[in-house]
Design a protein around this nucleic acid. Structure first.
Length: 431
RNA sequence: UCCGCGGUAGCUCAAUUGGCAGAGCGCUCGGCUGUUAACCGAAUGGUUGGAGGUUCGAGUCCUCCCCGCGGAGCCA
């Protein structure tokens, strides 16, 4: 007998097959039983009547939800079944019968309860398709970079210094020395790019900020890229191509999951049509003011502002030329206006906020020393970083893409905590 | 850190002016041969987040504390 996964069901209509998985839900109507099985690839309905096999019927009728099992039966097309096909059950081999009722009901729960049971919640409902989309997004990002001649690399997670000074870091005791969990691999990727040309990595970043919004986690994954001989305009072009590629690849590969999530895929594809608009920070302020927002040049965007900008364009939009004092020390400033930086944030549509932050980096020793001083940062911890400007410095640029926000946007889920298997938030370190 | 909302059965929520602690779901039992979060019936289930206080009487009012959710700030 052939062992198949549930997503292959339609391909084996008429055949007797075996499925390894779990009992997801059960309904009965007298002498007929409807058992829903899941296996990570999907859910399929199985049917069994008492007349088919009285002993098997009795056994099946007593199985609690989430029993692990191997079920065999004949696949048939059945319009009344969810998914269009169902399994006429001929045998059930129980692997383990739960000792207690499964806590996650197929009814409503509060977010708190679900997050406390995240290790079980991920088996149910929308969580499986979301995590499968997450996998597809990760792979699409890697494919894109691979196709564009990038080398995959890594940055350290344990670091001795802050990358961006301002942000709160998680302290770690490192053999008696003060260390921190990395908030970004960027500075290290700049070094690696000088060795390998174009580099990327998808890695974790940690921020000890007490953020309590749908867009923040304390531990999150970023796709970071750094390119030697790239200037600001090259940087933006690469970013929009990446976002366009990822969305198209995921829509193609995970159409079934996005449908389950009721995502408007056409809208998504329309949003990522190239090119993305590019506006200056000053223009963004003007657009917001015309929309009635109270904001002035020099103010940072709040969440409502980002949402308003996303809505104004209906697609991702680059905000360029931020005032330098709003941004970190390592960003290069254009010759025509040293009060701004050659950086851009990519603001996503539909209220998902900043998807990408990127910039061209300072590439001369003089500028870097001056800007470190401007930000009151000590030189010593950055000596290695200064070295990059001492030995064959070249123009270079890079960016960081927030994976969870990108996944939330593609899935159309409101909160990024559902886009990672085990979210880490303020007050949430378990499970 | 600030603002707002909340904490009652395993879960999701009711409880009038301060007056006997309730329902639905889940688990268990019974019924039902095409269910779609099935349905119908029965049974089970309580230190009302914690500590004080007011009162004849507190889930309800007061004080403090704890926890959660949403948002702000900060950021990707």
């Amino acid at each position: 007998m052939r062992t198949i996964t549930i997503d292959q069901g339609m391909r084996f209509i008429g055949e007797e097959v075996e499925i390894k998985g779990w009992l997801y839900n059960k309904r009965s109507s007298g002498k007929i039983l409807f058992l829903e099985f899941r296996d990570g690839t999907g859910v399929i309905q199985g049917v069994l009547t008492q007349a088919d096999d009285p002993d098997l019927f009795e056994t099946a009728d007593r199985l609690p939800r989430e029993t692990s099992l191997i079920v065999s039966g004949t696949l048939r097309a059945e319009p009344r079944a969810p998914g269009g096909c169902e399994l006429g059950i001929t045998g059930i081999g129980v692997i383990q019968k739960p000792t207690e009722p499964f806590p996650i009901e197929l009814k409503e729960h509060t977010p708190n309860f679900l997050l406390d049971h995240r290790h079980l919640w991920i088996r149910t409902g929308r969580q499986v398709p979301i995590l499968r989309v997450r996998d597809a997004v990760f792979r699409a990002v890697r494919d894109f970079f691979h196709k564009h001649g990038f080398v995959a690399t890594e940055a350290p997670i344990l670091t001795g210094t802050s990358v961006e000074g301002t942000t709160t870091l998680f302290p770690v005791d490192y053999f008696g020395e003060q260390a921190y969990l990395s908030q970004s691999g960027q500075l290290y990727l700049e070094a690696t790019a000088m060795a390998l040309g174009k580099v990327y990595w998808i890695g974790p970043a940690f921020r000890a900020e007490k953020s309590k919004t749908r867009k923040h986690l304390t531990e999150f994954w970023m796709a970071e890229a750094e390119m030697a001989f790239y200037e600001h305009a090259d940087n933006l072009r690469l970013q929009e191509e990446l976002v366009n590629y990822v969305v198209n690849a995921v829509v193609a590969e995970r159409a079934r999951e996005l449908k389950q999530l009721k995502r408007d895929v056409d809208k998504l594809l329309e949003e990522v049509e190239l090119p993305f608009p590019r506006i200056s920070y000053a223009e963004a302020i003007r657009i917001l003011q015309e929309a009635g927002e109270e904001i002035e040049y020099g103010d940072d965007f709040g969440a409502p502002h980002e949402t308003a900008l996303g809505e104004h364009f209906g697609k991702p939009v680059f905000i360029e030329r931020f005032p330098a004092k709003m941004k970190p020390f390592y960003m290069k400033r254009p010759a025509d206006d040293p009060s701004v930086v050659l950086a851009a944030d990519l603001i996503g549509p539909e209220g998902y906020g900043e998807l990408i932050g990127g910039s061209q980096r300072v590439d001369t020793l003089e500028e870097l020393e001056r800007q470190l001083a401007e930000y009151n940062l000590p030189k010593e911890p950055y000596e290695w970083y200064l070295d990059l400007r001492r030995y064959g410095a070249v123009p270079h640029a890079g960016f960081g893409l927030g994976m969870a926000r990108t996944i939330a946007w593609i899935c159309g889920v409101p909160h990024i905590r559902e886009t990672i298997p085990f979210p880490r938030q303020i007050n949430r370190l378990y499970p």
